[in-house]
Design a protein around this nucleic acid. Structure first.
Length: 105
DNA sequence: TACATGACTATCC
DNA sequence: GGGATAGCCATGT
C-alpha cells in the first residue's frame, strides 16, 4: 500500500451515493496530474467493497473499466442501483451526476 | 536503475 | 461525435 493509493481511496470515499466523478477530478483534488496513476491505484483497489470504485468514470462520460466481478456490466448495474443510469455505454446526464470535491473548504 | 504497462486526458483530424 | 496520437505519473518486473 503506497501513500498515493491511500490518497486515492480516501478521495473515492468522499464520493456520495448517486454521483460519479472522473479520474482527472480525483487527480486535481490530490493536486497532481497523475490521472494515469490514479487509474492504476483505483484499478488495484484492494478495498473493493470499502471503496466505491464504481463511481469513478472517465471524463468522457463513458463507463471506463472495472476490475471487480462482472467487469463493466457490474459497474453499470451498481451505478443504476444508485440512480445513475447508463445508455449506450454513456452515463445519462453525466454532467448532472458529476461530483466535484470540496477542495480546501 | 531502466523498461514496459495501465480503470486516463487533451489535442488534432 | 468518433478515431488516432502524444503526454502524463505511479507501479511492477
Amino acid at each position: 500500500m503506497t501513500s498515493f493509493q491511500k490518497e486515492v481511496y480516501s478521495a473515492l470515499r468522499k464520493i456520495p451515493r448517486g454521483f460519479v466523478t472522473s479520474y482527472g477530478e480525483i487527480a486535481n483534488y490530490l493536486d497532481t496530474k497523475a490521472v494515469r496513476a490514479v487509474g492504476t491505484a483505483v484499478g488495484k483497489n484492494p478495498n473493493a467493497p470499502e471503496v466505491p470504485c464504481h463511481r469513478v468514470v472517465p471524463i468522457s462520460g463513458a463507463i471506463g473499466k472495472y476490475s471487480g466481478k462482472g467487469g463493466v456490466s457490474t459497474k453499470i448495474r451498481l451505478l443504476a442501483e444508485e440512480g445513475v443510469f447508463v445508455e449506450h455505454d454513456h452515463i445519462k446526464d453525466f454532467s448532472h451526476h458529476f461530483y466535484r470535491f470540496n477542495k480546501g473548504v
